[in-house]
């Protein structure tokens, strides 16, 4: 007799536990406002990306095409993956001295792990991490970027 009652009470308890679980899912069925799903590609306009989010390395330029990079290659040394290559050039200053200036700041996005070490290493704050995170391209070559714009110059007064 005891076993029979136990058997039926087990079934009752089991069904009760299932219904209890379903009451939770039922609550969200009736309260759709508490659901937090975001419709990603459609909500691009209202998408809020935090300021610190590390999406891609960029070199900010001023309105008259000047940047702050001196070509000291501190970022190249700090990078753990070798995704930054600095191609520098030597130019002659009006005083007749030879000076190292940056020719190309090559950044390979495909090799970057977004660890922020290059930004920390930069003595002149020339490079920053931008919030752009949509990196998909059809061609792998597009991921190798040259950060300094063509014809750009170093801002006056920025020395190594």
């Amino acid at each position: 007799m005891n076993e029979v009652t136990e058997y039926f009470s087990d079934i009752f308890k089991g069904v009760r536990s299932l219904l209890k679980g379903m009451s939770v899912t039922g609550y969200y069925f009736l309260h759709p406002k508490e659901i937090i799903t975001q419709q990603y590609p459609e909500n691009r306009d209202v998408l809020k990306v935090p300021e610190r989010f590390r999406g891609e390395l960029v070199m900010p330029h001023t309105a008259d095409n000047q940047h702050r990079c001196t070509g000291c290659s501190a970022c190249q040394l700090a990078c753990p993956n070798g995704s930054i290559i600095i191609v520098s050039d030597r130019v002659e200053t009006p005083e007749g001295k030879k000076k190292k200036v940056i020719d190309k700041h090559v950044y390979n996005l495909a090799m970057c792990t977004f660890c922020n070490l290059c930004v920390r290493a930069c003595p002149t704050d020339a490079i920053v991490m931008s919030n752009d995170f949509e990196h998909a391209t059809y061609d792998r070559g597009e991921l190798i970027k040259i950060l300094n714009q063509p014809g750009s110059k170093v801002l006056e007064g920025i020395e190594e």
Partner: peptide, 23 residues
């Protein structure tokens, strides 16, 4: 989302540096 705002990344945060924190 808290990590994204504090550390700048969602999963692989690298928030620690020898000597303290990155931000």
């Amino acid at each position: 989302e808290i990590f994204e705002e504090t550390c700048g990344a969602r999963l692989t945060m690298s928030y620690n540096v020898p000597g303290g924190l990155m931000f």
